[in-house]
Structures are given as C-alpha cells and as structure tokens.
Simulated assay, not measured.
Amino acid sequence: MIYYIFILLCLLFPATAAETSESAVSPESAEECRKRGFDRLTEGDYDGAIADFTRALTRKSDFAEALHERGIAWFSKGDYDRAIADYTAALEINPLSSEAFHNRGGAWLYKKAYNRAVEDFSKVLDIRPDDFEAYSNRGTARFYNCDYENALADQLKAIEINKNYFEAYLNAAWLLAACPDAVCRNGEKAVELAKKAVEMNPGPDTLDTLAAAYAEAGNFEDAVSAQKSIIASLNAESSEQKTSEYANRLKSYEAGKPWREKCKILPPPDTADKADEKKPAEIVSEKEEKPMQQQQKEDSFSDKTAYTVHLFSYLNNREMSERTVSRLRKEGNFVIISVMRSAGAGDWYHIFVGRYKTLEGAHAAVEKWKEKGFKADAVLIRSESLMF
C-alpha cells in the first residue's frame, strides 16, 4: 500500500516573443490556444483541452508547453500511451524539463513499467537534486519492483528534504512495518513515522499503516484497536476491495501476526512496458511539402523498395537534428536525415531510422521504438518517396 502523486500541472516555459510571432498563420495565436487549453485542463474538460493544445501545435509544432500539457490531459483521461508520447516529444524539444520527466515517470508507473519510471524520476533528480516528490515517487516505483532497500532510502530522503511531506511519511512507515525484506523492517521507527502521518492526515489508510506499525512492534492490542476503528468508520460507499484488505489485516493482528506485503515480480521491461498501438492526435496540420535537399551523410538506401521508420522531425532546427542523428549513429543505428521546405513554415528536418525489405519488418521496428518511449505516431515511408 504505497501511495504516489506526480502530476505537475504548471506553466513550464513562458512563451517568448519569437515563439508567438510564428502564429501569423492564424488570427488566434499558438499561445492563446494553449492558454485556453490550460484553463480547460484545470477545469477538468480534458477533451476540450486536448483540442486546444492540438490547435496550438498546428500553429507552432515545437511548442513544448502545449505538448507537455496535452500529455497531462491524456494522462487524466487514462490514456497513458498518448501521454508518454507527448511528454517524450516535449523532452525532445526541451531535454531539461524536470516536469516532463516527472510526469512521464508517473505514466510509466501507472503502466507498471517500473524500471522506466525509476529512470525518469532519476532524471528529475539529476536536474533538481532536492525534488522530494521525485524521491518519493521513485521510491514507490522501486517498491513495486521489489527493490525495498532503495525504496526505503528514497522515502527517507524525501522526508529529510521536506519534513512535512505526508506521502513520504506514510510510504516509509508502511515499508518499515510490512516490508517482506526483514532488513527494511523496524517496528519502533514505523510507529514513529506513522504517528507523524496520522497528525497530518488521520484517514483510514493512515490509521491502517499505524496498525501495521503497531503489529510489527509487537503491540497487537493497539494494532487490533486501530484496525477495528478503521472498519467501524467505513460506510456503504467504501470499496469492497479496501474493506476486504482491512478485514484480512485485522485477522492477522488478532492472531498475533504482523502484516507482510508480497513481492510480485513483473515481466521484464521489453514486454511489460509495451505501449498499445493507439495513435495520438496529430501534432501538426498537414502541409504541402516540397523536397529541397537530401542529406545522406554516410548512410543511403540501395534498395528503393525498402521501408524505413520516421522517428523525429525538427522545424528550423538543424543543430538539434544533427545532434540527434549523431547520437543515433553512435548507438549503431542506420540513419537518414531529409530536409524539406514547407511553404510558410520553413525547413523541416525529418529523421528516419533503419531499412527493411518488408512492411512487417518496419512495423516491428516501430514497436521497438515505442517501447523505448519515443513518439507513438512514428510512420513508415517507402525509401523511394525520399527521392534519393
């Protein structure tokens, strides 16, 4: 019973004059669309918010704030794959956005992709070493991954940074009381932290944690008393699952046995983290593009019936596109960069990865890139359409 919060609903990067000047394609600017979307997001109108953020992105395709906030809207609708796609796209534009890493970590957590959640929360801490929420959420991911010692260390670090952070007290107390690993258990410390949590929020789950702490400390009388008070406070609207959990723990305490969590090892990330095939809403509107120049570098197609995978696109950002190509090649990938001019917008730098003789092979590659957290709307393009 570990708890976590991670949606950081905030304005990340105020729009600059240069950004808003690109909105000349419409009387309504990208920033105006984004602001209306943000208002709808805070009001709980997620579909309306998504529509506005998408409008903003048709006017400014590299609008990191709109991508990030649309990701929050997708997450709020329970569409974690599209949320991850938008967070990832925002991070391609601003790789130092701790908020986007944090929220993507939360989406991975909900998808039970715990290793990836740990990676993203760790990236938050690289950027913001004193982010107590990132420590606590990383501890949650580690708990569900059965990495108990590190999970406890993260929760205690969160408390060290913020002495009033309720969730970390609750999570740490539960680990100290009910962890399956005896190395992490400490009844007296669990009672101390659980009492502190009760002072902050004396709800059923907090009292449930205090009862578990009492039991681990050998004080079964107080454990039984606390657990009975929880059950007595439940009403007809309480979930059947919660009621059953509380009752099972009461039976354990009445039998003189402390409660123990059970470690449930999930499949490795390559199967557990696989995103579904739903396609996110379009990021930019369709525009007529005419080939201006093809940059093949040292890679090229020899078979014009082959397929490739479209992975990135950058608008008027040659430096970023070349850095991306360099990184992908260092990782051993076959990479093509295609530069195309779009009327009224500028130069698009499209990056393609891999070459495949069949469409099925390319589709399989797309799924592998999705599993790595890249944009879920990657498309397949015949090599002959690249006009090499």
Rank of each mutant, 00 (worst) to 15 (best):
S252K: 11
Q241R: 08
D222N: 14
E371D: 07
Y307Q: 02
A378M: 13
A134N: 04
C33S: 15
A217G: 01
L315E: 10
E261A: 13
H363V: 08
D39G: 10
F166H: 11
S233G: 09
E331T: 06
A226C: 14
R40V: 01
K304I: 15
C184L: 02
W348M: 09
A365C: 11
I2Y: 10
T88V: 04
V339Y: 07
A178S: 15
P95F: 14
S233T: 05
A172S: 15
A236N: 13
D131Q: 08
K111V: 00
E43I: 03
K195H: 14
I50E: 07
K251G: 04
N186Y: 07
R116C: 04
A182R: 12
N94H: 13
D181F: 05
A153P: 00
V353M: 12
R185V: 06
E331F: 03
R40K: 15
D347A: 14
N186M: 05
A173L: 08
A247E: 03
A223W: 03
T324N: 02
I161M: 08
L311P: 03
P268R: 07
K262C: 00
V118D: 01
V224D: 01
N186D: 11
N248H: 07
P267Y: 10
F38R: 00
V124H: 06
G218Y: 02
Y3K: 00
E322T: 09
N94G: 00
L193G: 04
E371I: 11
E360M: 08
A197H: 07
K278P: 02
M340F: 09
F388D: 05
E149F: 03
K375R: 12
E221L: 03
V183H: 11
A172H: 14
W348P: 03
S238N: 08
G48I: 06
Y87V: 05
D120H: 04
P202T: 04
A364R: 07
L41F: 15
N137C: 09
S238Q: 11
Y46H: 11
S122A: 12
S244Y: 07
E133T: 12
E277N: 11
A212Q: 00
Q155H: 13
S252A: 13
Y246N: 04
S233M: 02
S233C: 06
V25P: 10
K35D: 15
L315H: 10
D86N: 14
A343L: 12
I50N: 08
N248P: 01
Y4F: 08
Y110N: 00
E298P: 01
N145F: 04
E367H: 00
A223D: 05
D79Q: 11
S23V: 05
L311S: 02
Q294Y: 14
V224P: 04
V284G: 15
L12R: 14
A364G: 06
K196E: 14
S338Q: 11
